[in-house]
Write a protein that binds this DNA or RNA. Structure first.
Length: 528
DNA sequence: GTAGGGTTAG
């Protein structure tokens, strides 16, 4: 933490209230920061400009719909108190508006108070950051080159901005020229390597950085997480000395996003232990709910929902969407619809979650209605949306509609069908007796057909007792998943239905030969 | 006060 300029080192800069508010803002607990500020007002009758500056810092971290009203009321509050021209709250407010309404960013430099040198530097840094956030590297560069003074924050912003925009060489060059470096400077480079997918290089840098802070660790952990290296992420997490909320959230998200739902809940439980006890926030619960959904653990999900209320976490749109996903997967469609209707803003993710849910539960007209509503709202669908829509048609057995929908993906929406879309189509065509068309579709797939695609067709061959195609398809399945006995059973069922007892016997011998014999014999004839 | 970390969908 930079010391305040001598003149500003007035009482209040490091008062307990200010420190607590600043800490809450830095820990990503904006609501707590606001609550603390309100308490500070009640506790002392003299409002403190430094406390105000600290609370303003937390406003951009509030949920989007709360940030603007909060900014407006704090602005009015400043005016009423006559503190608008105090350099600290003024700079904080200017910065805040630059984040919420970036178009107004140039206003940052015509300050209401006569800006002293250091305040001018802070304001310039805000403007620089705002140009970098907008991705306008030339404008940022121009400002950086003409700034009368630069401090480590200016350099850090520039290095981070260049690195994230993919100009790694320039970032490294600038980093080399820095007159002074702190942990954030190293983090800026680290972040750049990770953004470019250079994990090994990032790790090397991480290991030889002279200073590391929690941000460095978490940047590295989430880098591994995005690269799917869960083990590397977990190893780093365990090595961390003081795990803050961001660290716990990063690890829970890592597990949840990489399909390790059980482990995600395990980490959450650890953080809830009395001797650890870190107060969770919205991000924590997003990942936890996603893990519950993957596990289909409705009971735990319901507990989480009520627990959120008890720790004062508000149900925002992200959380609602995560819950929509959980409830649709658990078959609680009414509850899911209620949550969906309560969204402040419906977006691609929430529409897709709901459409997929409708698809899973055969609610065709709802799925189609939602898709239309979403198109009317000018929200472009993505591959997930079509998984939902296609499975809705598939459930209803509407071959013609599904074909048209599938074709429109690439022709109208420029979305390449994935294995999953092909699987749904193959399953639908197959179940409706269009075995040849399904087979042709698999042959046309631009990617390598996964066993599940062939498996869907094999199921259809059983349904329609097609021995000839069934044998071809089964051989593909055996090849792709040699350990999976289910395909042998399906083929056996086809033979049995066709009364090809000789083939049944030969298949059983084949299974014994391949060491797959521990299958109850009864399942062969069950369907016959 | 300005830089830097975690965010939901099949």
């Amino acid at each position: 933490m930079r010391a305040p300029p001598a003149a500003a080192a007035a009482a209040g800069f490091n008062s307990p209230w200010t420190l607590a508010i600043r800490a809450a803002a830095d820990q990503g607990r904006p609501r707590r920061a606001v609550a603390l500020y309100l308490s500070s007002l009640r506790a002392s009758h003299r409002p403190c400009p430094f406390a105000l500056a600290a609370v303003l810092k937390s406003v951009p971290r509030l949920p989007a719909h709360d940030a603007r009203p909060a900014a407006a009321s704090l602005h009015a509050h400043l005016l009423r108190l006559g503190l608008l021209s105090h350099p600290y709250p003024h700079a904080a407010l200017a910065h805040l508006y630059s984040r919420l309404l970036p178009a107004h960013a140039p206003d940052l430099l015509d300050g209401a108070p006569a800006l002293r040198r250091h305040s001018l530097l802070v304001a310039s840094n805000s403007l620089l950051a705002s140009r970098l956030r907008a991705g306008d590297i030339p404008a940022a560069r121009a400002l950086f080159d003409t700034m009368p003074a630069r401090d480590v924050v200016s350099w850090n912003s520039m290095v981070a901005g260049l690195a994230k925009a993919g100009h790694l060489d320039e970032a490294i060059e600038l980093f080399g020229q820095m007159p002074e470096r702190n942990a954030a400077s190293w983090n800026a480079l680290l972040c750049g390597f990770i953004a470019q997918g250079q994990l090994a290089r990032a790790r090397e840098l991480f290991e030889r950085m002279p200073v590391r802070n929690n941000v460095s660790w978490i940047t590295m952990i989430s880098g591994y997480s995005k690269a799917g290296d869960v083990q590397a992420a977990a190893d780093l997490f365990e090595r961390m000395e003081s795990k803050d909320l961001y660290a716990w959230n990063a690890m829970i998200a890592c597990y949840a996003q990489n399909g390790c739902a059980q482990e995600a809940l395990g980490i959450f439980n650890r953080m809830m232990k009395p001797h650890v006890w870190v107060l969770p926030n919205e991000k924590t619960f997003s990942s936890v709910i996603s893990a519950c959904s993957q596990l289909g653990d409705l009971t735990f999900g319901l507990w989480v929902e009520s627990f959120m209320g008890s720790v004062g976490v508000e149900l925002d749109d992200h959380l609602r969407t995560a819950l929509v996903d959980l409830y649709t997967k658990s078959g609680r469609m009414d509850r899911a619809f209620d949550l969906f209707r309560g969204l402040r803003m419906r977006d691609l993710v929430s529409y897709s979650a709901m459409i997929v849910g409708c698809g899973m539960h055969g609610k065709l007209s709802e799925a189609v209605g939602l898709f239309k509503e979403m198109s009317d709202a000018k929200i472009d669908p993505n591959a997930v949306t079509f998984v939902g829509l296609l499975s809705a048609y598939s459930h209803a057995g509407l071959v013609e509609e599904a074909r048209a929908c599938f074709a429109s993906m690439s022709s109208k929406y420029r979305i390449n069908p994935t294995v999953e879309h092909y699987t749904i189509m193959v399953d639908l065509l197959g179940r409706n007796g269009k075995l040849d068309e399904a087979f042709q579709l698999i042959m046309q797939m631009p990617m390598r057909p996964h066993a599940s695609v062939w498996g869907a067709l094999l199921l259809a061959c059983r349904l329609h007792t097609n021995v000839e195609l069934g044998e071809i398809v089964a051989s593909k399945c055996f090849e792709l998943e040699p350990e999976e006995t289910g395909y042998y059973i399906l083929l056996g069922n086809i033979y049995a239905q066709a009364k090809k007892w000789e083939k049944v016997k030969r298949l059983r011998n084949l299974m014994v030969e391949r060491g797959l014999s521990k299958v109850p014999g009864s399942s062969w004839v069950q369907v016959a």
